[in-house]
Each structure stands twice: as structure tokens, then as C-alpha cells.
């Protein structure tokens, strides 16, 4: 198979790997971008959430062969893609504990706020299906509400 061309964080790239390789491992192993995390490999936990053509997706389920000409945004570029205020709030509200799931949480939260600038608790429940084992859910919720207030 020919190398697959796509963009990551605005930069055009070409990756030559097995076409079934999940985007998660393309990012982590082939491109050395380790901000996107491996948690479960079956789209359950959301630690690997990235934006694909502007939508939050679980990159462990996206094979390399499916992303020709696509545009991918990862946690490394969230700050320059409208997420800087969220990242700031994550520190202000001391949201993360171990932090491992939080890249995925932030990518999901940014996607939610883009589509629903003033989310209700129900909106948050529906959109934020990422798993956190440390129990940061109340703080993630509070930070999303705070971000919505600040943007208003």
C-alpha cells in the first residue's frame, strides 16, 4: 500500500504502515506524538480521543487506511484550536489526578463546547463518556460549566 497522506495539527504528513494500524498507534509510534493515550483499544474509555475533520473520535478505532486527506487535531494542538481556556481551567480547578485520561477528556469537552456552547448537565452526561478511574467527574463537569460561563 502507498503511504497515506493526511494532516495532523495543520501539518501535512505521510505515513507508510500497515493499513489496519489504528490512528492511535500511528500518532504514538510512527509520529512520536504521545499526548493521545492508549487506554482500552475498544472505544470504551475515550483516552485516545482526537478530532477528525472537526469531530471527536476514538482514534483506536480509526484505521490508517481510512484517513487519507483527513485533518486530525490532537491534544498537542488543542491550545491553538480553541482549547486554551479549557486547559487553563483544568489547572485552576485542579481537575486531573493521575491525568492519564485527561487528554481525552479535554478533547471531548472541547468538541462538546464547540457544538453546544451552553451545555446542560444532560448534555455533558451524553457527550462525556470517557472513563476516569481517579474520580474526577465532578471537577470535569464543573470545569465545562465554568468554560461555558466564561465564553458567554
Amino acid at each position: 500500500m502507498a503511504p497515506v497522506r493526511f494532516r495532523v495539527n495543520g501539518k501535512p504528513l505521510s505515513v507508510d504502515a500497515d493499513p489496519s494500524t489504528p490512528l492511535l498507534w500511528v500518532l504514538r509510534d510512527h509520529l512520536g506524538m504521545t499526548g493521545t493515550k492508549f487506554g482500552c483499544g475498544i472505544a470504551q474509555c475515550g483516552a485516545c480521543t482526537v478530532h477528525l475533520n472537526g469531530d471527536a473520535v476514538r482514534s483506536c478505532q480509526v484505521p490508517l487506511e481510512s484517513i487519507a486527506d483527513a485533518s486530525v487535531t490532537t491534544i498537542e494542538a488543542l491550545a491553538t484550536n480553541g482549547g486554551a481556556h479549557l486547559q487553563q481551567l483544568w489547572a485552576e480547578l485542579n481537575v486531573p489526578q493521575c491525568g492519564y485520561c485527561q487528554a481525552g477528556m479535554l478533547m471531548a469537552a472541547a468538541d462538546l463546547l464547540k457544538k453546544t456552547p451552553k451545555p446542560t448537565d444532560e448534555d455533558i452526561d451524553g457527550a462525556m463518556t470517557n472513563i476516569c478511574r481517579c474520580g474526577t467527574y465532578p471537577r470535569v463537569r464543573a470545569a465545562i460549566h465554568r468554560a461555558a460561563e466564561k465564553a458567554a
Binding site: 486547559q87 485552576e92 481537575v95 491525568g99 487528554a103 479535554l106
Partner: peptide, 19 residues
Amino acid sequence: PSKLNIPDIAHGRATYGID
């Protein structure tokens, strides 16, 4: 004070073992 490593976590810079 918040945990000192949060900015690195929130920007995907914190290096875990897997990274």
C-alpha cells in the same frame, strides 16, 4: 496550590511510562 504538573498534563506533554 493546584498540582504543579497539570499544565503539562493538559497539553499532552506529561510523560507517563507508556510515552
